[in-house]
Each structure stands twice: as structure tokens, then as C-alpha cells.
């Protein structure tokens, strides 16, 4: 019995690993670190930003994915505490961001995801999404998004 349950939660994790973040589809919601807990009867999600417009979309995508995998009985709950920070993004997620052309969150100056130069400057505090700011590389002159350290 216990073995079956462990398999169940493993299978649920697999389903969630395949759900992309709607704003940055190269990341899955598990890469982003917004799946807090998986139990036999429920999964617990947390929002990235208080006003993130993707929150409801993510919930319905998770619902659809769970239903499609036969987990109709699994409930979806959300929690605010402890608050999500960019530290919850997995190392794999950071690598995927970089490969996609988005600089991963850093407390220092981000390196250009195109050419690797550290001669970069901020153009705008807010970018194409609330979680990103807009930067420019002074070496290769390409603009890029930085996933803001949060």
C-alpha cells in the first residue's frame, strides 16, 4: 500500500514537471519552484508575484494536466507562506533560462546571455513581464531580459 502511494506522488510530480510556465514556457512550474508539496490527495502551489496574472492560468493548466493523467481526485491548493523568491528556481531552471536568452536572477551584475560579457547595463526596471527587467550588453549591443532577483 505504501509503495503504491509513493508511486502515485512520483507520477504526480512527473505530470507537474511537464506543465510549462505560461509567461516563460521554456521553464516548467517545477523548474520555477512554485510547486510546494505533492500529497496523495492534493498539490500545493504558491504564486510568484502577488499580482501575477499567470497565477489563475497556471492553476487551470495544472488542473487540466492532472485530469488528463487520471488524477481528477487531486485537489489544488495555494499558499502564500513562506513567500516565493527567485532562490526557489532550480539549477536546471537557471540553465534553461540562460539557454533561452534570459539572464538568471543574480544579486550582482548579470552576464549577457548572448556573449557572456559582464559589461551590461539596466535599461528599464520593468521588462516584458513583472518578473523581468530590461538590460543591454555593451559588448555585443544586444538587449536582454533579466529575471529579477526577488
Amino acid at each position: 500500500m505504501a509503495a503504491v502511494r509513493a508511486l502515485d506522488t512520483d507520477a504526480i510530480w512527473d505530470v507537474l514537471r511537464a506543465v510549462p510556465d505560461p509567461e516563460i514556457p521554456v521553464l516548467s512550474i517545477t523548474d520555477l519552484g512554485i510547486v510546494r508539496e505533492v500529497h496523495e490527495d492534493r498539490v500545493i502551489l504558491t504564486p510568484t508575484y502577488t499580482g501575477c496574472p499567470a497565477t489563475l492560468v497556471i492553476e487551470s493548466m495544472v488542473r487540466e494536466a492532472l485530469d488528463a493523467a487520471g488524477f481528477e481526485h487531486i485537489a489544488i491548493e495555494t499558499t502564500l507562506s513562506p513567500p516565493w523568491t527567485t532562490d526557489w528556481i532550480t539549477p536546471e531552471g537557471r540553465a534553461k533560462l540562460h539557454a533561452y536568452g534570459i539572464a538568471a536572477p543574480t544579486r550582482g551584475v548579470p552576464a549577457c546571455p548572448q556573449c557572456g560579457s559582464e559589461q551590461t547595463e539596466e535599461i528599464s526596471r520593468f521588462g516584458s513581464a513583472p518578473c523581468k527587467s530590461l538590460w543591454r550588453c555593451r559588448s555585443c549591443a544586444e538587449p536582454f531580459d533579466l529575471f529579477k532577483c526577488h
Binding site: 508575484y49 499580482g51 501575477c52 513583472p130
Partner: peptide
């Protein structure tokens, strides 16, 4: 950029 920043702050506030 300013337009984006104002709209994003609005989103945060409406989320609160």
C-alpha cells in the same frame, strides 16, 4: 518602459 513599470505596479497593487 515607463508604461510597463506603471502597469506592473498596478498589477502588484491589484494582486494585494
Amino acid at each position: 518602459e515607463v508604461d510597463l513599470s506603471l502597469a506592473n505596479m498596478a498589477l502588484d497593487l491589484i494582486g494585494q
